[in-house]
Design a protein around this nucleic acid. Sequence first.
DNA 1: AATGAATGAGAGTTCATTCAT
DNA 2: GATGAATGAACTCTCATTCAT
Lengths: 207, 207, 207, 207
Amino acid sequence: MQPENQSGGQEKRSFIEEARRGQIVAATVETIAEIGYAKSSFVQIARRAGISPGLITYHFAKREELMKQVMLTVHDSMEQALSSRTEGSESYSAALRGLIEGFVHYCAEHPAELIAISQIADAARDAEAARQWSDAQNASTLTELEDMFREGQEAGEFREFAPRVMAVSVIAAMEATPAELMARPDTDVTQYAKELADLFELAVRRA
Amino acid sequence: MQPENQSGGQEKRSFIEEARRGQIVAATVETIAEIGYAKSSFVQIARRAGISPGLITYHFAKREELMKQVMLTVHDSMEQALSSRTEGSESYSAALRGLIEGFVHYCAEHPAELIAISQIADAARDAEAARQWSDAQNASTLTELEDMFREGQEAGEFREFAPRVMAVSVIAAMEATPAELMARPDTDVTQYAKELADLFELAVRRA
Amino acid sequence: MQPENQSGGQEKRSFIEEARRGQIVAATVETIAEIGYAKSSFVQIARRAGISPGLITYHFAKREELMKQVMLTVHDSMEQALSSRTEGSESYSAALRGLIEGFVHYCAEHPAELIAISQIADAARDAEAARQWSDAQNASTLTELEDMFREGQEAGEFREFAPRVMAVSVIAAMEATPAELMARPDTDVTQYAKELADLFELAVRRA
Amino acid sequence: MQPENQSGGQEKRSFIEEARRGQIVAATVETIAEIGYAKSSFVQIARRAGISPGLITYHFAKREELMKQVMLTVHDSMEQALSSRTEGSESYSAALRGLIEGFVHYCAEHPAELIAISQIADAARDAEAARQWSDAQNASTLTELEDMFREGQEAGEFREFAPRVMAVSVIAAMEATPAELMARPDTDVTQYAKELADLFELAVRRA
DNA sequence: AATGAATGAGAGTTCATTCAT
DNA sequence: GATGAATGAACTCTCATTCAT
């Protein structure tokens, strides 16, 4: 009897089970960051977690389930880190800057996580279930940002522009950060964050 | 006597062989765009090309060879399309706009190609040989753009900013276009292109 | 967590795994002896072992690994059988006779093993890794025999002859035995052994 | 319409066809000697012959046919070379010495041929048709040698020994020569030939 | 709750052989 | 006679998943 999510909702999980799932997710992040998604077989992940491959399937009915959980976990962690930066901003501009700078710093602090979700997202373009979730996640982030831009325009703080295009571009630019930091490890992160925030501040502000 | 696989470089290929190679490359683009890189096995690609899987290996010694050829072909086609837009620009601003708008229009006209090379590039993170080529390609594009920004600054046309950060962001924003156009097929492409160009024009111009 | 495939050497193997490996090695010997090396695909070997082909790769990371293990196993078994015949010989002549007769009797008792390693050794002429091992094995046997001849000469027991030529010929004549016994199953093995030993005794003895 | 051997006998072959067959056989010998039997695909052989792979099948209905022809050709050439050495011998001893020394010198002069037929013979242990032929060839050589020994015994020139064992051993020792000469290219061939002949002279002569 | 041996489907690749030209 | 593009069967190897323990 597998303790898996069944259609209709999620039943409670025991403490030990939650712990195992967390351990497996962590090992997955580590493994993908180290050897890449394509080589990250269950055998490899299990080795890093110090467990047997069968146990992964025991806790995650399908490979997709595991990958989805990785993305969920990282996204949660990131959102938590970002909320402190964006909450209580005095202006839309300040919120945007908080978001961008927060994201960049999060990238610098959690490179493995970012690499992992980026590779999973790339690979998930085929796995239907994972893709749907990933797309939905993306869509909601996009929409939130779009709304923020619209509000900023209505508040007269931002110039007139297509909020959607801006949102897509901001997210794209942010998501390019991990790869850039990896390619150039000597990058001054704070400076990078400031430059990126400056860029979009100039792009949105009312002239 | 396999047509691929010879040391020393590329000797002449017969007309019929060139045609087959082209057909296979086209089928590969089509297949990846439709079902994703991970599912695009030789069987799938061959089916779409109406040939036997063995024929792909006959014309491309290794899978990597095929994928590299796909990237090369698409890059060539894109560069050709873009050069007409950027050449002869009166200002750095105009060149940037030309590049961005050209790219967006190319995306709209060749969505499958863009999706394919993006997925191949993502997947190539493991395959050493392919990765090196992909990285080099990317690096050269980045550097060119960076240089353009630096020149624009020296010419007094652009404000002071980190050329590298700007280059990374411009490319990221452009590369986000195909997915966006696919997700929202009703998008007004010309408008999208103009908005994106506006965005970066404001971001780089001397206030 | 595949049992093969770990860097650093050979860690402990479970009992069940050792058993399976032994079973697979035995099936390989049987298969090669029966249908020949070239036709001995994993499918054939697995059928004889009553397992699935995938299980072979599970226990032996590469085909070469399996073949190397077969050679190692047979060589060990043979050396054990021969050592009892050659140890404690009173003279070099007696040692030579012990070696030759021991080998011939071993051939008669383990025809399949001999055929198998001979075919593997022949086929390994291409596979670099296997070849090196096989060559080294061969070279050491040759050298040992050569040394024995030299010592026998220095002791005044053997006539003057080129030890190397003699060693090569003895080994060649011995290795021809399995095929001969297979071709003529009615051969009187003891007689064959004695004749072969006589042959080389006359060839080496001081007139 | 393939000009192939059909059951019932061999019809005449045109001059050009014979030439092609000879060229293909030569290229096969060359290829096997250079890259080994296992890697000697038709593509490789055809490349060396400067023809297309299809042409090989055109002249030799099956791969086996080609290999059989290679063995036949080399055996013929060898027999011709040896007959001059053995014919007209004054004694059985002299004939034996002539055979052995002739063989060794032939090995030194035609290394590629010897390597090729040795590898083909090894590999042919499975291919039924080739095996049968190879075995038959071997058997006839063996029997001839055996008969020679028996006659020598009847003539009172040789001691009493099992002619079959001696024949097997002589052939085995001779066939070990090419590998030894390849492994040690500096070997003095004439000396090697003399040593080998001495060895068997002592083994057969009446004490 | 956990193991790890075992399976089976599918991957890329090789190659003798066929056949339209 | 000759080509070389094309096929199809066979190969080794990978791996998520299953299941007896």
